[in-house]
Amino acid sequence: MVKAKPKPIGEIIDYVKDFDKVLVAGCDGCVTVCEAGGLKEVQVLASSLRLYFNKEGKRKDIEETSLTRQCDREYLEPLLDKIDNYDAVVSLACGVGAQFMAELYKGKPIFPGVDTCFIGSTQERGVWVERCQACGQCIIASTGGICPIARCSKRMLNGPCGGSEKGSCEVSKDTPCGWHLIYERLKELGQLDHFEAPTDPKDWTTSRDGGPRKIVKEDVQP
């Protein structure tokens, strides 16, 4: 799922300081799972904003809501009736949800309340780790089910580099060397014979290098 983290409150205060009626809108999807932008985080942010502006002697209406998903039209449309009650929206959805809201409610200033970080998994509660960079052409079949693009700091396809030490990446002792993991896994799977064949340069056109991407699945189109 998409992983995000809350923006510093000061940054959000700065966005909304000139608006009187502000809606803080969460998303019940990915950002709820990573505890950055669900209803709970909406309440905390809205309360913090009220505390701040009340302390400053500024009267503002700061309201709270959370939508099933902000990245789908059907879940955003219920806001249509209420959106004009607000001067601005702080979206705690990922960058996708916040942008989609801006796309749908063109006249309304939409501000991001989280920093969207990566596609990842939950390592333990409170710890989320990156696992995929959405390159558009999955190669983990040949790398023991571990993605070198997401997990090697240099996204090497023929790793590990000379900076791999005791299982850690040269970038940080806290970062496992992706290629060390791949090697161990290939060994476990008895697939080390693949290891010595050089992997050719990757075609990055399916990644962000090819420009904004789009998937069309005709069989499900209306």
């Binding site: 510093p8 409150i9 000061g10 905390v44 913090s48 505390l51 701040y52 302390k55």
Partner: peptide, 8 residues
């Protein structure tokens, strides 16, 4: 941490 951020 929040209270520090909002000057409380």
């Amino acid at each position: 941490h929040i209270l520090d951020q909002i000057g409380f």
